[in-house]
Amino acid sequence: MRHDRRAFLGNAAAGAMVVTSGAALTSCADTGHYEPGKGGTRWAMVVDLRKCAEHEDCRACTQACHKTHNVPDFEGDPLHEIKWIWKEPKFDHVFPSFENHPLPAHIRKKPVLVLCNHCDNPPCVRVCPTKATWRREDGIVMMDWHRCIGCRYCVVACPYGSRSFNWVNPRPYVKEMTPDFPTRMKGVVEKCTLCEKRLSQNLLPACVEACPHGALAFGNLEDPNSEVAKIVATEFTIRRKPDLGTEPEVYYVV
């Protein structure tokens, strides 16, 4: 057989393709996409907008969450704002493909409570180059702040604006420090973790516990007896931007 440089390079390239293609294909497919009916745990949240929108100025959930997780308060400065759970002022900004006209009065011009959707098919996880964010078996899209390098690909990838970047050191803006939970530092991204720490202690997420109007429900969607499964099975619910295929796990009763 003839051995020249051309043949060698050709064979080497073909070999490299064979060796890497399997890994490349599976790593693209492996975003942890969930198939319903698989059993196990799939944490989900239901926001009852009929109750929530009635209390436009209520921020009990946001306050409870931000205190539990030492989220800094930049007093509304949109450049630095860090958001885990918050109210978006307009319904059609949150549900842009919902084009019914006119919207019923109880939601039209009313703020909508939003948070990380903990998608089954999370685009943020797909783009993270360090696996600092990933989808856990139970459906929580988790953040590992130790691994975040601050590239902000996830911030761009998230179609819901659920991720915030720390442009400055957040410490001085944490009004009341909860020493149990670390703050974050300049140069990392953060977002809601569905209170995975509280879940491990058998507690409900802080926002759900704090809601004085019973507008939030939380539970395992795979368990037909859970509150969320019952609501989703009996009420008509909508999710944010379903056409994107991200499969949000936050449902809205309107």
Binding site: P179, T183, M185, K186
Partner: peptide
């Protein structure tokens, strides 16, 4: 160690 940028050290509670 950069830990104390985030983790709360005893004195800065």
């Amino acid at each position: 160690p950069a830990c104390w940028d985030c983790h709360v050290a005893p004195e800065d509670k």
